[in-house]
Design a protein around this nucleic acid. Sequence first.
DNA 1: ACCTGAACACCGTTCAAGT
DNA 2: ACCTGAACACCGTTCAAGT
Lengths: 188, 188
Amino acid sequence: MALTDTKQAVMMAARSMVQSRGYNSLSYRDLGKEVGIKSSSIHYYFPSKGNLGAALTHEYTDDFLSYLNEMLAASPNWKHSINSYADVFRATLVRDNRMCLGGIMAAEHTDLDVEIRNEVERFTELLVQWLTGVLQQGNQEMDSTTLKKWAFGIFAAIEGAQLVARGCGDVAVYDHILDAYRTAGLLP
Amino acid sequence: MALTDTKQAVMMAARSMVQSRGYNSLSYRDLGKEVGIKSSSIHYYFPSKGNLGAALTHEYTDDFLSYLNEMLAASPNWKHSINSYADVFRATLVRDNRMCLGGIMAAEHTDLDVEIRNEVERFTELLVQWLTGVLQQGNQEMDSTTLKKWAFGIFAAIEGAQLVARGCGDVAVYDHILDAYRTAGLLP
DNA sequence: ACCTGAACACCGTTCAAGT
DNA sequence: ACCTGAACACCGTTCAAGT
């Protein structure tokens, strides 16, 4: 067993809870029950809830990017990469109607500590940067400003599709919305 | 003074609070302080928080649609109507980084009572229906399935743009994303 | 180093009691 | 008809106390 076993268990449980019920609904007592320790013990690892939320978002961003980059290495072309990106958000939705951590945190923005807000911005920046890189592969004639805006557009549109489909509790809604994005030309 | 003065005051305060901090962060005690009564008194008007949330979303939907239809009557063409629609979401963002009630509720979906979930779906359906009607004005050659998907796409994309811009705490992000939507052809 | 129980001010909700 | 205070089980957080 690694030294940080309990800490990692707390983070894993917390991530899953936030993705399905949101950060505000995350309870140290529920978290303690899940992991098998008392709520006061969690404060040993994460002094405050804001601290936990920030660590959570940071790790989530890193894991997400690692996954995307692994996928990129095996991807035949940029169009395939963008579609795989969209599939990740679809899969999250299928798994218990969960949401992207960055998206659900953005919705709760006003209540968040500054440390979490910074991590949400980092998540956004790094994913948009990844998308920009992919778009550039197949559109080298485009200037960087247009590419970055396009990447931002795809990022926001996918977040929105997930949000709305989740609100309807229906993955088919996600698929219909993505059809529209493709027809319009926002997605390849 | 109307008979339902207090009730309306509760709803107005609650709507504004939810749009800025979310439904989960809405507190009956804070609400009571705002209106000038005790938290237990609010239960006289709204037996449960779910009840209040549902009433809130229902009224929000009706008000939103009334506004959109008034705007429609004064609008020169469908493209102008769609852009005005996008401006409403922009204005909400500018006013204290607020969010669309339907969007923020969708993010908190898992925690919501069924009565609220139904109202969130009603909001989505009616707004998409409104958008479909507007799109039809200028695209009569399109079949109704394509039109409805397009409307759904616009609805989700705007919600997403608002969500992401809110997460960044920057209206300029909203503008950039909408530029991308227009360049791609998702928005006219 | 890691965990606990008790205490604090919060939360939605209930209910008997007031006017 | 409308409002209140007290009580209930919840919440994050603190802290002295255990091992």
